[in-house]
Design a protein around this nucleic acid. Structure first.
Length: 541
RNA sequence: GUCCCCGUAGUUCAAUGGAUAGAACGGCCGCCUCCUAAGCGGCAAAUGCAGGUUCGAUUCCUGCCGGGGACACCA
């Protein structure tokens, strides 16, 4: 049974009869009649009809619906507990966070919140890039400038300066390479420098997370460096399993499922000819840790689509080598790359990346101008608060509402639109309801009584309210927050129609009470849903 | 060369194999003596092409056209 495609057919429709009739060798209409006769939906459905080749259309009774969405019921029913590890955000600590980190960060965070709300044990894993060759370069540069941590105020500039030294000075470049070796062998002095750098860079990230309303904390950070000590063991196990092959001096694994038509097999390089490890090795260690130590039943990776092949290889090898048990699901949830209008990876005019802080500044600035134009009478403090919620919300929603795995073009005006299918539309619906309560001197906590669904707009609103749980279940299963965006958009839209057609405060006392309760349920659902997306709401706007 | 992903209104996005392909922006036409017009109502506008499977295909299969990405010692 699924939500009906068109309202005139009913509220829900069952399409399974037609397929079942075929395998049973019966006429679809006859089977549909038999199914409907066996159905006991007294008190639930108002009507059950058979239409077309064998559709069963169900219209819920308004009384049943009103009871389903009653304020006495929990908005969300928890599911069976299971452990889900979510790998998201994972910026490179060598540089500052830029717009390319947005999708992984906010989609992963929304999924973490939704799964938690559904009762799962969620473990966030921020797999930051804090290890490898570029950190040798950064440490060497840090040594040169001494304890001047003010130079780390702008990580982007620091990185560029280090890179310039590396490219122009061979002595520096050699020193940088030696620092990589020193790091990997555990040299105390070099490690101390490295820790200093990582600490400051992580603080930069945390500031962005806080501003974005992302729930990641320092404890969730589990960088590549944390797996360093496990890598030799990974290689040893692969060797014991007879999976390693030496090829051009490197230790590789050739899995037959990665053979092409031409018979060539794509290698998975585990250890370089110089003895160094690669990210496949680290990801194998991470997968083993998540399944073994964290006891994950499901591991979700929110990572750029360009790493699809890499993850297919890592997942296949992790199972083959026994690092990950059969009953632990490994899922890569890819998303497209953000491009500029020229179709190339997104850059600013001067060739640099757009920092996340710059995007958020622009968003808040535009939102503040709009709030000020629309509500000049509000105190500045409140206008700034609204601008923050609206601006940041718009940016997050613009990304959360898309499901594309193909590349997409970054556009300021699209991302910072405040009209139509946007976060501000949802926030506006919330503020209209809270403002209605305020206007009517209604205490939200004190609203009591039953919901009654009589007008078409009320029934439609009730139907949508009743689909919150199934929407969250879909989001959890498909790992697709855009389904929740679509749901909330529909709910807000239904509310706007209700608002136009059904007066609340001026209605007769019994109708007024029922409608206030309906509004109460709508605002609670909108707030909860937006909260799961990590988007703030406001009392007025 | 091999492998993967994607082609839906002018634009940005939807659509467990289901009925007349939904929204939003933009465009055009309307609606504030009435709980916030960041809103509501209406109109025009789309499945790249050709086959196949199916009672039924945007969805599954094949081919073609077009776009993107990944493929040995970066991550």
């Amino acid at each position: 049974v699924a939500a009906a495609g068109r309202p005139e057919f009913g509220d829900y429709q069952a399409n399974g009869v037609m397929g079942a009739a075929k395998s049973l060798g019966r006429k679809p209409r006859d089977l549909a009649i038999a199914v409907v006769e066996a159905l006991d939906v007294d008190g639930i459905a108002q009507s059950v009809e058979i239409a077309g080749p064998g559709f069963i259309n169900i219209r819920l009774s308004p009384e049943f619906l009103a009871q389903q969405i009653s304020a006495d019921r929990a908005l969300i029913e928890p599911a069976a507990p299971a452990t889900v590890v979510i790998d998201y955000s994972s910026p490179n600590l060598a540089k500052e966070m830029h717009v390319g980190h947005l999708r992984s960060t906010i989609i992963g965070d929304a999924m973490a919140r939704v799964l938690e709300a559904l009762g799962y044990r969620v473990i966030r894993q921020n797999h930051v890039g804090d290890w490898g060759t570029q950190f040798g370069m950064l440490v060497a540069h840090l040594e040169e400038i001494g304890h001047d941590t003010a130079a780390l105020e702008d990580l982007e500039l620091f990185y560029q300066a280090a890179k310039r030294r590396f490219d122009s000075d061979t002595a520096f470049a050699d020193r940088a390479r030696s620092r990589v070796v020193a790091l990997q062998s555990g040299d105390a002095a070099v490690l101390a420098r490295w820790r200093e750098f990582v600490r400051i860079s992580a603080a930069h990230c945390q500031a962005v997370y806080d501003r974005l309303g992302v729930s990641l904390r320092g404890d969730d950070m589990m960088g590549e460096s944390q797996y360093n000590d496990a890598l030799a063991g990974i290689v040893a196990t692969l060797d014991q399993e007879g999976l390693l092959t030496e090829s051009d001096g490197a230790k590789c694994v050739f899995l037959p499922e990665f053979a092409g038509k031409d018979g060539d097999i794509l290698p998975i390089i585990i250890e370089k000819s110089d003895g160094g490890y690669l990210y496949a090795t680290t990801d194998l260690a991470a997968a083993r840790h998540r399944c073994g130590q964290l006891h994950a039943d499901r591991v979700m990776y929110f990572v750029d689509v360009r790493q699809s092949l890499h993850f297919r290889q890592v997942f296949a090898l992790a199972r083959r080598a026994g690092f990950v048990a059969e009953d632990c699901a490994l899922e890569h949830h890819p998303f497209g790359t953000m491009l500029g209008k020229d179709g190339r990876p997104f850059r600013t005019r001067d060739g640099g990346v757009v920092k996340l802080t710059a995007l958020l500044d622009e968003a808040e600035q535009r939102a503040l101008a709009l709030v000020t134009a629309k509500n000049p009478e509000l105190p500045e403090r409140e206008r700034r608060g609204i601008a923050r919620a609206v601006g940041i919300g718009a940016v997050k929603y613009a990304d959360l509402s898309k499901n594309r795995t193909s590349d997409y073009v970054f556009d300021w005006d699209t991302m910072l639109s405040f009209d139509g299918n946007t976060a501000p539309y949802l926030q506006y619906a919330v503020s209209r309801i809270t403002s209605l309560f305020r206007r009517g001197n209604v205490d939200r906590e004190a609203i009591h009584g039953a919901i009654r669904l009589i007008e078409p707009a009320e029934i439609q609103l009730g139907l949508t309210l009743g689909r919150f749980q199934e929407t969250l279940d879909d989001v959890a299963r498909e790992a697709s927050p855009h389904l929740l965006c679509g749901y909330l958009m529909g709910l807000a839209s239904n509310y706007m129609q209700f608002y136009e057609q059904c007066p609340v405060l001026s209605a007769p006392e019994d109708v007024r009470a029922a409608r206030l309760q309906l509004c109460n349920r709508v605002v609670a659902t909108l707030e909860r849903g937006l909260g799961l997306l990590g988007i703030e709401t406001v009392e007025r706007m």
